[in-house]
Nucleic acid binder design. Structure first.
Lengths: 231, 231
DNA sequence: TGATTATGACTGACTAGTCAGTCATATATT
DNA sequence: AATATATGACTGACTAGTCAGTCATAATCA
């Protein structure tokens, strides 16, 4: 009755293609062809999963859809991840870490504190606000309570570091007389709040009322540092 | 085989209680006992649904759980709501509207603008931050993209109103010389941002680092209005 | 070098379970 | 009794996770 062993007719198209295209990229690793392709697939799965999770949230995302988007069979996902939950968790780590690294690398120890903060804001604007990464932040806010491990990770790797960095900058600004409000060092959140609001705004309300995040952040800095110091 | 018609032993406790307590509130309606009880049930369902949605998000929430928590059979839910989605949407409306009404009713047209804003902040602190209502805000942020109608409603009823109110206050503050930063009127978001951050913080990071929201808001107001005006 | 065997990445049909929504039946109200 | 409400067992659609089998590639052999 259930004799439908439809094993036949496997389309070997992708296979053949890959073989031809990706043989022996000996640029960076002794990586056998296999390992390379496996890494590529993992990356494809991570990308696809991020899109789907951002669009639908954790619970409503179907692994079938992730697989389809990644151009992979569902079973393949389970070669890289234990289950849906750990996939989500690893995904967040995978995507967040490089961003943090890039943002916390403050390159110019030159100029005024305001310039430093402005450079950071500009970076944040470009790297996060209005990008897929911004959506990821919203996703963490959304799913955090149901994924304590994700919230923990995010607090440890992003929030606490960002807060420490901001606090240091604020204290420097106070020491140099650029910032008047001494208590600000106790609440670096205030410095970051408008940037976070901008992230959320772009996800939720951009349709209703576009927000010029750059200009808003400038006004906010004026508030903290006093009116423009004319470079 | 499936003869477990366990119709027996229905616990009529809640039933009896409600019947006894709320009979004939002819204050507002020709409400028969029935209408009253129906309203109570609806309210119970809304409460239960809010708890569940906040705890699990829309997709992961089971109607069976809502029914159980509300002390009602699943079918009863469908006497009040068309389906899960419209229940969620109506729920948000039902819960949000009274809060907005309460918050936008600025009672004291006396004193300085700072006093006005402070009164508002204090209200917000008590009514929203760290409460179930705050969680609801986080839920809207979380589910908004998947429920455009909810996001629209929230923008129309809460965000745009709040922004307009804040803008008016800011302009008044500028006119009276209490606020220096003129451009602030273009971005009332800046005024509200720390309060929103506090809401999210309490949901996500309170465990890691408790936040004294009240004090933070005070510092923020100092930033905008200048140091304390000593009442 | 060319042939043979071993490996393990990959597949997708399948299982077991879940849950939104329905409706025949039971209960309460008038 | 007739009507309005409420119930919860049931159904069918849907999906996370599994696993026996396939096949390109790698390793070994002749």
């Amino acid at each position: 009755m259930t004799d439908k062993p439809t094993k036949v007719a496997r389309p070997p198209a992708a296979r053949a293609l890959a073989k031809g295209a990706a043989s022996q990229t000996r640029d960076e690793a002794p990586a056998s062809n296999r390992a390379t392709r496996a890494a590529e697939r993992r990356a494809a799965i991570v990308d696809a999963a991020m899109e789907e999770f951002i669009a639908r949230g954790f619970a409503a995302t179907r692994l079938d859809d992730i697989a389809k988007r990644a151009g992979v069979a569902k079973g393949t996902i389970y070669l890289h991840f234990n289950d849906k939950e750990s996939m989500f968790e690893e995904l967040v780590r995978t995507v967040i870490v490089p961003v943090v690294t890039r943002l916390t690398t403050l390159p110019p120890p030159t100029g005024s504190v305001r310039d430093l903060v402005e450079a950071f804001a500009s970076n944040f604007l470009k790297e996060v606000i209005g990008t897929r990464r911004g959506d990821l932040v919203r996703l963490i806010v959304a799913e955090g309570p149901r994924f304590p491990s994700v919230a923990d990770f995010y607090y440890r790797e992003v929030v606490s570091r960002g807060m420490a960095g901001m606090r240091a900058l604020i204290e420097l600004g106070i020491a140099r007389g650029e910032i008047r409000e001494k208590d600000l060092a106790r609440y670096p959140q205030i410095l970051i709040a408008p940037a976070m609001i901008a992230v959320i705004w772009q996800s939720l309300f951009a349709r209703h009322a576009p927000l010029d995040a750059q200009d808003m952040l400038r006004v906010h800095l004026d508030l903290i540092f006093g009116e423009r110091s004319t470079t």
